[in-house]
Amino acid sequence: MTEYKLVVVGAGGVGKSALTIQLIQNHFVDEYDPTIEDSYRKQVVIDGETCLLDILDTAGQEEYSAMRDQYMRTGEGFLCVFAINNTKSFEDIHHYREQIKRVKDSEDVPMVLVGNKCDLPSRTVDTKQAQDLARSYGIPFIETSAKTRQGVDDAFYTLVREIRKHKEKMSKDGKKKKKKSKTKCVIM
């Protein structure tokens, strides 16, 4: 069974824990209790493949930012979460993405942009803004509501699919490099 290491990042209060708990335990946590770091595991079937999701729910508070490099190193894919009623959390996505790329030393890291709290009427981040940002990053965008469960499975499952595509691409690139290195030079 394939294991996928997913990391949920975003500013404090955007609903990272609520999304994760909704996926794992099928219930909505409405009281806000700032996370330092929590880890969850769940076995699911995605596109006919049974897999184990190892999900790291991270601290959004700035005082825990020193811990970010460590979990970013171990993560295979990242859910970059903002709240649709919090423009600052949307603007912060850029910083999370840049930090992930720096730590992973790669421009090509599996990510999904997630606009959470889409059940709320007080939207300050337009869907088109988020779609445009995701398009500019070359990553999928999904709106979710941890409260109603809308888009929750889709967000995590899409990230797994992005990781699969990335692994497939990397193995193809690896095979191309191996083929090239088999060419021999004969000096007579």
Rank of each mutant, 00 (worst) to 15 (best):
T2A: 11
E3Y: 13
E3R: 12
Y4R: 12
L6G: 03
L6K: 02
V7M: 06
V8A: 08
V9F: 05
G10W: 03
G10P: 14
A11C: 13
A11G: 12
G12L: 04
G12V: 07
G12E: 15
G13T: 10
G13C: 11
G13W: 14
G13K: 10
V14I: 12
V14D: 11
G15P: 15
K16N: 05
K16M: 02
S17P: 01
A18W: 01
A18L: 00
T20E: 01
I21V: 04
I24N: 02
Q25W: 13
Q25A: 15
N26R: 11
F28N: 00
F28T: 01
F28C: 01
V29N: 02
D30N: 06
D30R: 04
E31I: 04
Y32E: 01
P34M: 01
T35E: 00
T35A: 00
T35Y: 00
I36T: 00
I36V: 01
I36E: 00
E37I: 09
E37V: 14
D38M: 00
S39N: 09
Y40P: 00
Y40M: 00
R41M: 09
R41Q: 11
R41E: 05
R41C: 06
K42Y: 09
K42Q: 08
Q43D: 11
V44C: 13
V45M: 12
V45Q: 15
I46D: 14
D47W: 05
G48W: 06
G48S: 11
G48D: 09
E49A: 12
E49W: 08
C51E: 10
C51Q: 14
C51R: 12
L52Q: 13
L53G: 10
L53V: 12
L53N: 15
I55N: 04
A59D: 00
Q61W: 01
E62G: 03
E62Y: 03
Y64K: 00
S65V: 07
S65P: 03
M67I: 06
R68G: 05
R68T: 02
D69N: 13
D69H: 12
Q70D: 04
M72W: 07
R73T: 12
T74L: 07
G75F: 05
E76G: 04
E76Q: 08
E76P: 13
G77E: 15
G77M: 14
G77T: 14
G77W: 08
F78N: 11
F78T: 02
L79Y: 03
L79T: 01
L79M: 06
V81P: 03
F82Y: 07
F82A: 14
F82I: 12
A83P: 06
A83S: 11
I84W: 13
I84M: 13
N86H: 05
T87G: 11
K88C: 12
S89A: 07
F90D: 14
H94R: 15
H95C: 05
Y96Q: 04
Y96I: 13
Y96F: 13
R97S: 10
R97P: 03
E98N: 12
E98T: 03
K101N: 05
K101S: 12
V103A: 05
V103G: 06
V103P: 02
V103T: 15
K104T: 15
K104L: 07
K104N: 15
D105M: 15
S106K: 10
S106M: 13
D108T: 05
V109C: 07
V109A: 08
V109Q: 08
V109N: 02
P110Q: 03
M111Q: 03
V112Y: 12
V112L: 10
V114Q: 05
G115S: 11
G115A: 13
N116Y: 02
D119N: 12
D119H: 04
D119I: 06
D119F: 03
P121M: 05
P121Y: 06
S122N: 12
S122D: 10
R123K: 11
R123M: 11
V125N: 11
Q129Y: 15
Q129C: 07
A130R: 14
A130Y: 13
A130K: 07
A130F: 11
D132H: 08
L133P: 13
A134G: 13
A134C: 10
A134V: 12
R135D: 14
R135C: 14
R135F: 05
Y137S: 14
Y137R: 12
Y137A: 08
G138M: 06
I139L: 15
I139G: 10
F141Q: 03
F141D: 03
I142K: 08
G151H: 11
V152K: 15
D153I: 07
D153Q: 07
D154Q: 07
D154A: 07
D154G: 07
D154M: 06
D154I: 06
A155K: 02
T158F: 05
T158R: 07
L159D: 08
L159I: 06
L159S: 01
R161E: 03
R161W: 03
R161S: 15
E162W: 05
E162M: 05
E162P: 02
E162L: 08
H166T: 11
H166F: 06
K167Q: 05
K169W: 04
K169N: 08
M170C: 07
M170T: 06
M170E: 15
K172T: 13
G174D: 05
G174V: 06
G174P: 05
K175L: 13
K175S: 07
K175I: 06
K176S: 09
K176R: 05
K177I: 07
K180L: 04
C185H: 03
C185P: 12
V186F: 15
I187C: 14
M188V: 05
M188F: 08
